[in-house]
C-alpha cells in the first residue's frame, strides 16, 4: 500500500491532463491490455490441459515437468527473455527454422510480446488450476464416466465447471503478471512504440529522463488494472 501512496503523493497533478493525452501513453496502454489478454488466452489454452495432466494423471516424469513449469517463476525475467531468443530468435533452435521456412520471426513483434508474457505468466495459471483440480473431488469424474461420459466430456462438462473459480483466479494472476511483465518482454521483443512498447517498458524509459512522466504512466497502469480486476471480481461475486 505504502509505495502506492508514494506514487499518489508525488504525482504531478497539475500537468496530469496533458500528460495523459500524450499519444504514446494511450498506445502503450492499449498494447499492454491487448498483449496481457492474449497472453492469458494462450496460457489458458496451453496451461489448463497441462494442469490437468499434472493434477489428474500419473504419467511418468510428472514431478519433473511440474518443477519445469515453475522455472519461469525463479528465472529472472531477463534471462527468460534471453532463453526465448535462443529458441525463437533469428538464430534460435526453432526461430531459424521458422524464418527460413515461413519467413516469420518473433522477436520485435507484438506476437513476441505475447509469447514473452505468456512464458512468464504461465506458472501462475498452471499452479492455480492444478491446485483447484487437486481440491476438486475426482469422484465426480467417476460418476460422469458411469453415466457414459468420455474423459473429455467429463472434463468439459463436470470438472471444468467445478474448478471454474480456480481457473478464474489463475487467469487473473496470469493477466496481472503479464500486464506488469518487463524483463522478458524488453529482452525478447525489444522496445518499439506502438508495436512492442508496453506500459512497463514505457515507465522504465520515462524513468531515464523524467520521473514525473514515469509516475504518471505507473499510476495509469495501476488504476486501469485495479479497475479491471475489481470489475471482474464483482462479476464473479454476482455469479457464485
Amino acid at each position: 500500500m505504502l509505495p502506492l501512496a508514494g506514487l499518489l503523493v508525488r504525482a504531478p497533478w497539475t500537468t496530469l491532463p496533458e500528460r495523459l493525452t500524450e499519444p504514446g501513453v494511450l498506445a502503450a496502454l492499449r498494447l499492454s491490455l491487448l498483449t496481457a489478454t492474449l497472453a492469458t488466452g494462450v496460457c489458458l489454452v496451453l496451461g489448463v490441459p497441462l494442469a490437468w495432466l499434472l493434477g489428474r494423471t500419473g504419467f511418468p516424469g510428472r514431478r519433473f515437468v511440474r518443477a519445469l513449469v515453475t522455472v519461469p517463476l525463479v528465472l529472472p525475467p531477463v534471462v527468460g527473455g534471453v532463453a526465448l531468443l535462443l529458441v525463437f530468435g533469428r538464430r534460435g533452435l526453432v526461430g531459424e527454422w521458422l524464418d527460413t521456412t515461413f519467413g516469420f520471426t518473433l522477436p520485435f513483434t507484438t506476437t513476441g510480446v505475447v509469447v514473452a508474457e505468456a512464458f512468464v505468466a504461465m506458472p501462475f495459471l498452471v499452479i492455480s488450476v492444478e491446485g483447484a483440480l487437486r481440491a476438486a473431488d475426482a469422484r465426480y469424474e467417476e460418476a460422469a464416466a458411469t453415466l457414459g461420459a468420455s474423459r473429455w466430456t467429463a472434463f468439459r462438462r463436470v470438472t471444468l465447471p467445478l474448478i471454474a473459480p480456480g481457473v478464474a483466479a489463475g487467469a487473473v494472476l496470469c493477466w496481472a503478471r503479464a500486464l506488469g511483465e518487463f524483463g522478458a518482454t524488453i529482452t525478447f521483443a525489444g522496445n518499439f512504440p506502438g508495436r512492442t512498447q508496453t506500459m512497463p517498458l514505457a515507465v522504465y524509459l520515462a524513468l531515464e529522463q523524467d520521473l514525473d512522466a514515469a509516475i504518471v504512466l505507473s499510476l495509469v497502469l495501476v488504476v486501469v488494472s485495479v479497475a479491471i480486476l475489481a470489475a471482474l471480481r464483482d462479476k464473479w461475486a454476482g455469479v457464485t
Partner: peptide
C-alpha cells in the same frame, strides 16, 4: 517519498535492467 515512488516503479516494471 521519491525514493519510495522510485522503488515502486522499479518493482512494477520488473526491475529488469541488464
Amino acid at each position: 517519498l521519491t525514493a519510495l515512488a522510485l522503488t515502486a516503479v522499479l518493482v512494477t516494471s520488473g526491475c529488469g535492467s541488464g
